[in-house]
Write a protein that binds this DNA or RNA. Structure first.
Lengths: 334, 334
DNA sequence: TTGCACAATGGCAACGTTAACATTTGGGTA
DNA sequence: TACCCAAATGTTAACGTTGCCATTGTGCAA
């Protein structure tokens, strides 16, 4: 039994095929300047030896990794799976791979994400920013490392992309007003959520743009429990005919809360959520909600990096609008 | 303005610090055989030049990437986010990175996942197997590439790990029987789901082990809609007092279906789901369900690869039991 | 016949890092 | 004083790939 060779290189293939290393390399890249018969001979040698190109050697030579790093401060988060779907899809399209890293946030800084990535084989990086990093204003991306932030905030040096939360609220409020409601009540989320705050602004400003003074909001904490409590509280206000909750869990909780007080949905009160996260969980009641295209957000981020890698960069800020999906929890008052 | 150098190498740092390249390397690795003052001088040079070690050069030299590849046939799947949390946590612990790849399955084979990974900078790979690959029995992992499959099936050449779906059903059935129910009805899932089939077997065999002939099962399709229909169908059977649904969406749909026929839960019928995926979505009704530890599954897979990388390998098969979480949808008949 | 264009292939060097070995230096001991 | 040892640092080569340039061969027009 012959000793097992550590790894098969172009050199070994070249020797077996009786050609130069360069011709092997050319065959790997399917260069037109290699005779078909020669190619076949080389390919046969590759098969026989079980050759597979070494990523490190290639990257070292080329100075490129064809890989995009994704930094997350917490992996379990609404929409992350869809975003990854987008990362993977776009990466595939460009022939890139995705490297995932969880970054510990103590404190939560872009700098820590950046330095974590710098030691990894990546050409660019995406940071999923759920909260506000301490150094957002002063952060400078590593030279030569295209950096895209997933956030609604604009950054002077990094491209950014995210769902348009402001527009989401605009759509919901105008939809409800358009169906005859005099005002829209709001169940918000904890104040540390960037996207939630933006939804709140959108709700407030859209109402004002229509000459309506926003009613007192009810603060929730994303859970259906808090929506339930909010629903019970709002049930006592007879003028409340339309409620907009900052996510679906709270919206659904709210419906149950209203019902527990004898208010019917949508006959007495219309309810709208955000996220389209319930799917068909509640089979006899399709919630009216806003569906975001997180996959597209993910794709945009990776596209940006791959494109920059091949030429012009330039900082861009992209907001992707969601789509309002009608269920049967809204009544037309007109 | 001086021209921007492509990238800073140990050579540049060595020149500026007035030491050899080797001393720079030693400083990077914090070797004890470098004088503290020298180290400081080198570190100052690194800072000044913005040096960061080149992954490709290092990997080429070492023959290791310190990276684990994760291959998925579809990214959006129950528990994938938690598994990734586990991958990332274990990778962190071992100083590894995670590279994510979506593999197109036409046909769905382990071979395609393996060859996709072979061109990437990874030392080992994890395949998340949702369905049954065509080549499961005959697949051979790439030499030198530790391969772990996330599946309940055992494989002769690859280590495997997954939630114990059989035991899950055993727990549920014994829990319900233990509370006085004479038998347990089952809402299953589509037959192509490996884990679902295993749940079905567990339900059937546990009942038989208790001398009970399993009643006719109702086939669902994971959706709450199908659970709703199943609930309505089972409502007509007055002997049906306990229902076990193969996931929470169907369980919840089933509850609504039963209620729509005038049967109350848990007064008339007890219902149990699987997955703990509803969380608190339904605020006034905590579903009795089984919670899986997908994070632990992910960690086990990466641990296995990292450990094998540092020494002994050996094929292992690991099943991680879930935990039954009591809600208020089960009535005690004793 | 000569010259030239072009197709096919080969030789060489360099990418950045580090293991293995080699060298220098200073301090202590016989 | 001569010697040795250990600490600190330096030199060399190699990991696998591929861009650049050189070389060889072949057919065709002048």
């Amino acid at each position: 039994m012959a000793a097992v060779k550590k790894s098969v290189s172009v050199k070994d293939v070249a020797r077996l095929a009786g050609v130069s290393e360069q011709t092997v390399s050319r065959t790997v890249h399917d260069s037109p300047s290699v005779r078909p018969e020669t190619k076949e001979r080389v390919r046969a040698a590759m098969r026989e030896l079980g050759y597979r190109p070494n990523f490190a050697g290639r990257s070292l030579r080329r100075g490129k990794f064809k890989t995009v790093g994704v930094a997350m401060f917490n992996i379990t988060g609404t929409g992350n799976l869809d975003r990854m779907e987008g990362f993977a899809a776009a990466a595939d399209k460009h022939g890139y791979a995705i490297t995932l890293t969880k970054v510990d946030g103590h404190p939560y800084t872009l700098e820590s994400a950046s330095s974590r990535m710098s030691a990894l084989p990546v050409d660019g990086m995406v940071v999923i920013m759920n909260r506000m990093p301490a150094d957002f204003g002063t952060f400078e991306p590593l030279p030569g490392m295209q950096t895209v932030l997933v956030t609604m905030l604009e950054h002077p040096l990094c491209s950014t992309v995210d769902n348009d939360q402001f527009d989401c609220s605009r759509q919901v409020v105008e939809y409800l007003l358009g169906r005859g409601h005099k005002t829209v009540h709001f169940i918000s989320c904890p104040e540390r959520s960037l996207s939630g705050m933006r939804r709140e602004e959108g709700w407030r400003e859209t109402l004002r743009a229509h000459g309506i003074e926003p009613p007192r909001l009810v603060r929730g904490d994303w859970t259906a429990q808090s929506g339930y409590a909010a629903g019970q509280a709002l049930a006592e206000d007879p003028t409340c005919t339309a409620i907009y909750a900052s996510n679906d869990a709270m919206a659904y909780g709210c419906i149950r809360g209203l019902e527990s007080c004898g208010r019917r949905v949508p006959e007495d009160v219309s309810v709208v959520g955000v996220d389209d996260s319930l799917g068909d969980i509640v089979p006899d009641r399709r919630l009216t909600t806003v569906r975001f295209d997180n996959k597209r957000v993910g794709m945009w981020a990776v596209d940006k990096i791959a494109d920059a890698d091949g030429g012009a960069s330039g900082v861009e800020h992209m907001l992707i609008p969601g789509v309002l999906v009608e269920g049967d929890t809204v009544r037309d008052l007109r």
